[in-house]
Design a protein around this nucleic acid. Structure first.
Lengths: 137, 137
DNA sequence: CTACAACCTCTAGCGACTAGAGGTTCAAGC
DNA sequence: GCTTGAACCTCTAGTCGCTAGAGGTTGTAG
């Protein structure tokens, strides 16, 4: 029934030190221990860790995931908060994509304008010397 | 001719602590100092810092910028290395955009499928419980 | 000559892990 | 029952690119 941290790692694809880190920051509850102080996890922990993992894959911050976990523990309450968190995250993703697309365009332009000569004529290094872009946060 | 660190900050838009940080990590050379040990910068430093700033705006890592700076100091050499660094960076940007677009799609789908009921029925939290996505590095 | 903004160095913190040292425990084979 | 060694434990420190703060010194305007 109970599994070791290594087995939990295998079943979820989350690395052992990362699992311990999640416990440390309060995403995972402190599990029961053997007499020799080794961690033993049950099915609930596996589900919770899968939830966390998927949240991270979707780019949610640990704080968001903490909140989403708290929400899903209260099935009777309305889910508007989950919606709000997700919407906020999506907005951040949209903005990041727009920013990166701008970078992509400028980098492509720079590469296209470099004729492959010597450094003195290089348009790439020339471009870098003349600041015009936008901030990458 | 020589300016203080605050003036350099104003002229380039790079914050004072960031300028000191760039000196510490070797992007900027240690400048001359007044008798009272305050930094004084010349025109060359302003150009160099502009180069660094624009590189960062384009998302280059500090190590890449260090290399690009070294290259631009050797005008006689061919610029293939600058080309290579830029191409590699562009590839990373492309990949990041693709990843974020996938996240964008899934987040949008999740938001669309949430009917706004209570947590027990919430498709957002449901989606999070069933891992399928890809890793965000 | 005084006031005070701007400068100085040094240390620590952010987020989300990752790496390593140095020591202990579990489980399988004999 | 005993040995081996993989897996576990805690703790500290490092990653990246800054940013914030403490506590002290210098430059310059009035």
């Amino acid at each position: 029934m109970d599994v070791s941290i290594g087995e939990l790692s295998r079943q979820t694809g989350v690395k052992v030190p990362t699992i311990r880190y999640y416990e440390q920051v309060g995403l995972l509850p402190a599990p029961v221990r053997t007499e020799g102080k080794q961690r033993r996890y049950g099915p609930g922990d596996i589900m919770r860790l899968n939830f966390i993992k998927h949240g991270r894959e979707l780019g949610f911050e640990v704080n968001d995931i903490r909140e989403l976990l708290a929400l899903s523990a209260q099935p009777e309450r309305p889910c508007e908060n989950a919606d709000r968190i997700t919407r906020r995250h999506l907005t951040a993703v949209d903005q990041r994509i727009a920013q990166l697309a701008a970078l992509q365009a400028e980098l492509t332009r720079m590469l296209g304008s470099c004729s492959g000569g010597c450094v003195a004529d290089c348009q790439i290094l020339e471009s870098l010397s003349t600041p015009t872009g936008e901030k990458v946060p």
